[in-house]
């Protein structure tokens, strides 16, 4: 059953058109289907939470948007271009926050934040100033010259968020970035993250396996079933009240239980 409460967005920034992804697996003759005939449109400026149980193909879908995986069938389009075939066209246009922080251990916090800008050949003084500003915004003033090993898990993930924002890319992709953090740190970072996305007018795709996280972050929640295909798609008003959210929670739980 597919339920859709939403009209398609005016100008889709990200578009999946009948996309499937299969993997050959060692010791098996048939192909494993991770994404199955997925259709999805994400509009410019939307903050979409993609929700699904582990193993339902969220990361696979994510990696196709990021241009790291090629669809087996169908078409993925981001900003009107093919993220896999036109990989380099997206230079400076997509920024990613991974599940683990993936900081370069030989770079200090500020050098890690400046990394994306360095890849874009931004002059040193300029990129360090920008990195400094983002570190401060994420509450890491005073830790500029610390190496990653000297930072806590939450601080490291803040650095990696600063790194993603610093490039000023319009599209932000996040694959369960807070799932490894403790609840309090995760909650605080989620709120800051959602605020920064909205303030900076980003289009953001946020992968999660937690209903709470999806409700806390998303303007829109897309629920995937396994293999990845839309099971439920809904928009929350920015000012959705508690009752409305509980309503949506109940429906999501019903869909996930199927």
């Amino acid at each position: 059953m597919t339920m859709t409460d939403t009209a398609p967005p005016a100008r889709p920034e990200i578009r999946f058109e009948h996309v499937s992804k299969t993997f050959g697996r060692v010791g098996a003759t048939d192909l494993f289907r991770a994404v199955d005939d997925l259709n999805l449109e994400i509009g410019s400026g939307e903050l979409v939470a993609i929700l699904g149980k582990t193993g339902c193909g969220k990361s696979t879908m994510f990696n196709m948007i990021a241009g790291l995986l090629e669809p087996s069938a169908g078409k993925v389009e981001v900003s009107g271009h093919d993220p896999f075939a036109q990989f380099n066209w997206f230079r400076g246009k997509i920024a990613i926050v991974f599940q683990n922080d993936r900081l370069l251990p030989w770079r200090t916090a500020i050098e890690n934040v400046a990394f994306g800008l360095e890849m874009l050949d931004v002059p040193k003084a300029e990129r360090m100033a920008s990195a400094q500003a983002w570190l401060t915004k994420l509450g890491l003033g005073g830790h500029e010259n610390d190496y990653p090993h000297a930072l806590s898990g939450g601080m490291r993930q803040r650095v990696s968020i600063a790194r993603a924002f610093a490039t000023n890319a319009n599209i932000l992709l996040c694959d369960e970035p807070f799932s490894a953090l403790d609840e309090m740190t995760g909650n605080r970072l989620r709120e800051e993250f959602a605020r920064l996305v909205r303030e900076n007018g980003k289009t953001a795709v946020f992968i999660t396996h937690s209903i709470n996280e999806a409700l806390q972050i998303g303007d829109r929640i897309v629920v995937l079933r396994r293999p990845a295909k839309i099971a439920y798609d809904t928009r929350l008003g920015r000012d959705a009240d508690h009752g409305a959210k509980e309503d949506i929670r109940a429906r999501i739980q019903a869909v996930l239980a199927e």
């Binding site: 380099n88 997206f90 230079r91 997509i94 920024a95 991974f98 683990n100 993936r102 874009l120």
Partner: peptide, 12 residues
């Protein structure tokens, strides 16, 4: 491989 992917995502 994680770091390779991270760096690749910036299209260096």
């Amino acid at each position: 491989k994680d770091l390779v992917e991270m760096v690749m995502s910036f299209r260096p």
